[in-house]
C-alpha cells in the first residue's frame, strides 16, 4: 500500500536547540515546576506519520501553543496541521495524547486540540480527541497502536 502523502513537500523549519541545563536544575534543593518548554520537549520529537520529520520541524507543535497550569493541574496543547485538509490530523493528535498520557504524572488533565481555524474539520477532530472512550477504543486497535508507537518511539 503506497499512499501519496497529503502534503508532499511541506515547509521545514529550524529545529530548536536542546534545553540548556541550568544551575538551578542541578541544585538538589530547588523544585522545578512543569513549564511549557518541558511539555514541548515531550512532544517535539514525535514523528510525522507521513514524513521522516518531527512535529517540531513541521511546526505542528510550538511552545507558544502550550499552556501549563501547575496549580490546577491542567495541560493544554494546541497543534497546527500543515494543511487545512490534512487527513492525519486525528492521528497526530492521538499520538500527542498518547505520549502525554505516558509521560505526564496522572494529576494533570490533558487537553489536545487543533489550533483554531487551522483545519477544515476542526470540530470533528477536537471532539474525537476529547472523547475518552473513543481514544481508549482506538488504542485497542493493533494497527493504530503500531503506527502511534512508531511515531512516538523515534526519539
Amino acid at each position: 500500500m503506497t499512499k501519496i502523502a497529503d502534503n508532499i513537500n511541506p515547509h521545514v523549519y529550524e529545529k530548536n536547540s536542546d534545553r540548556e541545563v541550568t544551575s538551578t536544575e542541578r541544585d538538589e534543593d530547588v523544585e522545578d515546576e512543569f513549564d511549557e518548554r518541558e511539555i514541548f520537549d515531550l512532544i517535539r520529537n514525535i514523528n510525522d506519520p507521513e514524513h521522516p520529520l518531527t512535529l517540531e520541524e513541521l511546526r505542528v507543535v510550538e511552545e507558544s501553543n502550550i499552556t501549563v497550569n501547575n496549580k490546577d493541574n491542567t495541560v493544554d496543547v494546541n497543534f497546527t496541521p500543515t494543511i487545512p485538509h490534512c487527513s492525519m490530523a486525528t492521528l497526530i493528535g492521538l499520538s500527542i495524547r498518547v505520549q502525554l498520557l505516558r509521560a505526564l504524572p496522572s494529576r494533570f488533565k490533558v487537553t489536545v486540540r487543533v489550533t483554531e481555524g487551522s483545519h477544515a474539520s476542526e470540530h470533528a477532530v477536537n471532539k474525537q480527541l476529547a472523547d475518552k472512550e473513543r481514544v481508549a477504543a482506538a488504542l485497542e486497535n493493533n494497527n493504530l497502536v503500531q503506527i502511534i508507537n512508531q511515531c512516538v518511539a523515534a526519539q
Binding site: 518541558e38 509521560a103 508507537n149 512516538v152
Partner: peptide, 19 residues
C-alpha cells in the same frame, strides 16, 4: 523527570506492536 519519561515510554513499547 526527563529520564523517567525516557524509561517509561520505552517500557511501554516492550512487546507492543511497532517496537
Amino acid at each position: 523527570r526527563n529520564m523517567a519519561v525516557k524509561a517509561r515510554t520505552r517500557w511501554f513499547l516492550v512487546g507492543a506492536p511497532g517496537e
